[in-house]
Design a protein around this nucleic acid. Structure first.
Lengths: 162, 162
DNA sequence: GGTGAAAGAAAAGACTT
DNA sequence: AAGTCTTTTCTTTCACC
């Protein structure tokens, strides 16, 4: 599971988390490596699973979804859980869902075109296995997704010392 | 704010949300357009703000952060709010933060290398303006981020009919 | 695991419909 | 706006260190 990273891997991953829309040449210059070596490393990082996916993030409001709500949900029993998990997969307005441990059982992100659309999704969840449902309307992004605070693995730090 | 999208824009955005790591040529074939036209449209979608960013998503566990927790937080007063918002920006383990309306005031995503690291971050938040703090340990991804359920704008649907 | 050069592929631009 | 063609640039591979 764990991937060994050296200083250059950390630089590459940090850059790619901020902006993956760069040529290999630009990336090579940013991390101080030759284009060929950079290409090789990025490929390795993808194959190793450190980079899971490269994707475009949209401005939800700009493309017709002015409302985003987060929902914490509990399910009462095994049967409700099964129904709920199926419903979450089916509803396209549920754009991500996580199982969590704590006061609630699930954490969902839901988008909506308007209040009516939102109400529809909430009702579907409430009537398909959802027990306690707490919703939070997203107001604004206080801290937009930041790169993970990566560090080189100890192995590469040791290697560097020798 | 709103960006007009036709059927081809919807196809492009849906593909790019799933995988932005494709050549323009592949993308062109997927949406049934010439490479030049595809390039032109993608650039337009970036300039219009529909595409906010293209970025690499890492496997947090694979790069040294086996723990992800979500935190719902309230702040008691204006002074606490100010302290809290500053602390959130400073802590690198807080990888995203949203202001929300509902039972709580903020929603944070926090990563940690181990329990000790997590405890440190929680303490920092609790002692820097955090009032009620509820934490949820992420167990697993039930529904990984899906593309938004985009539709062509009504204008382009009308255009198509004529 | 890195470099540098050479071949192949893709992107960018100009022009036409 | 989209298609085609040409030029320019980047990616990819390979031989070598």
């Amino acid at each position: 599971m764990a991937v060994e990273l050296d200083e250059i891997d950390v630089k590459l991953l940090t850059q790619l988390q901020q902006d993956a829309d760069r040529t290999n040449l630009e990336l090579a210059e940013l991390v101080g490596l030759s284009p060929a070596a950079t290409l090789h490393r990025v490929r390795r990082l993808k194959e190793s699973g450190a980079i899971r996916i490269v994707s475009a993030s949209l401005d939800a409001a700009a493309v017709g979804f002015p409302l985003t709500v987060f929902m914490a949900v509990t399910t009462a029993n095994a049967r409700a859980t099964e129904r709920f998990e199926r419903e979450v997969q089916l509803l396209p307005q549920v754009v991500s869902a996580e199982t969590v441990a704590g006061e609630m059982d699930y954490w969902l992100t839901v988008v909506a075109r308007d209040v009516e659309d939102l109400e529809h999704t909430l009702t579907r969840i409430a009537t398909h296995g959802g027990g306690r449902v707490v919703t939070y309307l997203r107001l604004k992004q206080l801290k937009p997704p930041t790169p993970l605070p990566l560090l080189p693995s100890s192995a590469s730090r040791q290697r560097r010392r020798s």
